[in-house]
């Protein structure tokens, strides 16, 4: 599996203040590097996708995932974090 360090973080939920701040703070604390962010807001429903590089990261993926889920719960949005290979495998030959 190529590039094992990249993960995709998705944020789904009602748009509100502080979502990006909350998510990026967690990533910065863990020394995860954000490669790209895209977001769309459709009728107050936010979809945000971050491509994140964990190469410099000191923590295990599972610990980062858990922190992201926790911050999602505090803000009131759903956050998922998965290895990029999941999406590459499903959508590219």
């Amino acid at each position: 599996m190529d590039n094992d360090n990249r993960i995709i973080v998705t944020v789904l939920g009602q748009d509100k203040i502080g979502i990006i701040a909350g998510v990026t703070t967690v990533l910065a604390e863990t020394k995860a590097n954000i490669l790209d962010i895209s977001q769309t807001v459709l009728q107050e429903f936010l979809t945000m996708i971050l491509v994140v590089d964990l190469a410099e990261c000191e923590l295990e993926f599972e610990e980062i995932r858990q922190r992201l889920i926790n911050v999602g719960e505090q803000i009131g949005v759903q956050i998922t974090a998965q290895h990029e290979s999941v999406f590459k495998y499903m959508h590219r030959i």
Binding site: I8, S38, T47, V51, F87, K88, H91, R92
Partner: peptide
């Protein structure tokens, strides 16, 4: 670095 996966595809998988 480029995002090779379209956001719609990511949302499709999560759905």
């Amino acid at each position: 670095m480029t995002i090779t996966i379209h956001p719609n595809e990511i949302i499709e998988t999560i759905k």
